[in-house]
């Protein structure tokens, strides 16, 4: 089971990497075509935007799972460290509610827009919202795992994590 989960997250990383490479290629080829060949790829802008949304929504799950979303934990950890494990349960509960709303709203929009077809790509605009369905569901699972997992106590002098905000 653990191994399956590991493979699953790695597969998501691979999907993101492939989408990123494809987006770079699409936009770059469009610039080259415009100047070198007086033409362009009509769907390139819409397709790269769609790829972007999928990268962001899949990536957000990984960021949540690794605890890398930007947060200010200093205050509670200094002021009331004993309460922090319980505050964290509440935090995961809020994450669960948000993810659940993202999931449910996206399901409705995916269905509503499945027959709404983009003129330039021929793809349903529901694909945009489908990214929210997958992302919301996975985030909710991560949140549930933390809510029913062990209490997370404050670890003093934790090293600065690499993944913090990269402006």
């Amino acid at each position: 089971m653990g191994k399956f989960i590991e493979t699953f997250w790695k597969a998501i990383d691979t999907v993101m990497a492939v989408l990123m490479a494809a987006m770079i290629a699409l936009v770059f080829i469009n610039v080259v075509l415009r100047y070198g060949f007086h033409s362009g790829l009509r769907p390139s802008v819409e397709l790269s935007r769609l790829g972007f949304v999928w990268v962001v929504m899949l990536g957000s799950v990984g960021v949540l799972r690794r605890g890398e979303h930007l947060a200010v934990s200093e205050f509670s950890e200094v002021l009331f460290p004993a309460l922090v494990p319980y505050i964290r349960k509440v935090i995961w509960l809020i994450v669960l509610v948000s993810a659940g709303m993202l999931f449910w709203g996206s399901v409705q929009q995916t269905i509503a827009n499945w027959h709404n077809i983009s003129q330039l790509t021929g793809l349903p605009t529901g694909l945009l919202y489908l990214a929210g369905v997958i992302s919301g569901a996975l985030m909710a699972i991560v949140a549930v795992a933390h809510i029913f997992g062990p209490l997370e106590h404050v670890v003093r002098d934790a090293p600065v994590s690499e993944g913090e905000d990269k402006q």
């Binding site: 415009r34 362009g40 009509r42 802008v45 819409e46 983009s118 003129q119 330039l120």
Partner: peptide, 20 residues
């Protein structure tokens, strides 16, 4: 993002580009 207008300017020899 209208297909018809993209087709039209393509036919007229312009180089249609997608820009927000």
């Amino acid at each position: 993002n209208s297909k018809a207008l993209n087709d039209m300017f393509d036919l007229l020899g312009a180089n249609p580009q997608q820009i927000p």
